[in-house]
Computed example of a mutant assay.
Amino acid sequence: MALSPERIDSIATLAGRLFAGGGKLDAVVRGVREANPDLKTVTGAMAAVMAEDPFREEAGFDLHLVDGNNHCWLITDKPELATGVVIAQRDEDE
């Protein structure tokens, strides 16, 4: 399953709206997961623990794409391989 640019925009917009509304990371992840039940992986992390560069930077969070096509998932920069996302919240100081 590939993630189209429009789908990535939709996910980022939803996550941004949930964060802007005061949502905590777990609530944002839950909201994105509920709106995208076909994604294999929707998870959250703090940006400081992510070793990879984000696919996209948004206000207050980074969006990483996940390739879960094999046994273990990995971060990818290729939307055509993406099966999910990691929403990585940044500290306000970042």
Rank of each mutant, 00 (worst) to 15 (best):
I87P: 03
A35F: 12
H71F: 14
D91G: 11
E92K: 15
V85T: 07
T43D: 09
K24A: 09
R7Q: 13
R30K: 15
M46Q: 14
P79Q: 08
R30E: 14
R33H: 05
P5N: 09
V49K: 04
D91H: 14
A27F: 00
F61M: 10
A88L: 10
D93S: 15
D38R: 13
V86F: 08
L74P: 00
W73R: 06
G44K: 03
L14P: 05
A20P: 01
R17D: 06
F19Q: 00
A47K: 12
K24E: 13
L25D: 01
A88C: 10
D9W: 02
A15C: 04
T41P: 02
L18F: 01
I87M: 02
A82D: 09
K24R: 15
A48K: 14
D53R: 15
V32Y: 06
F55C: 06
P54T: 05
L39I: 06
L3P: 02
V66C: 08
L63C: 13
A59H: 11
M46V: 09
T43A: 12
E80H: 07
D62Y: 12
A27R: 01
L25Q: 08
S10W: 06
D9S: 10
D53W: 08
G21S: 00
G68T: 04
L3A: 03
E92I: 12
I75A: 07
A51N: 12
A88R: 12
R56E: 09
A59M: 06
M1E: 13
H64K: 10
A88K: 05
E58F: 05
P37C: 08
L14S: 05
L14G: 07
D91F: 10
E58K: 11
A82R: 05
A88I: 10
A35N: 10
A88F: 12
L25K: 11
A45Q: 07
A59Y: 09
I11F: 08
A82P: 07
L65R: 08
V29D: 04
T43Y: 04
G60Y: 10
M46N: 14
I8P: 07
E57F: 00
R33K: 15
G44I: 04
R30N: 13
K40W: 01
A48H: 13
R7K: 15
S4N: 00
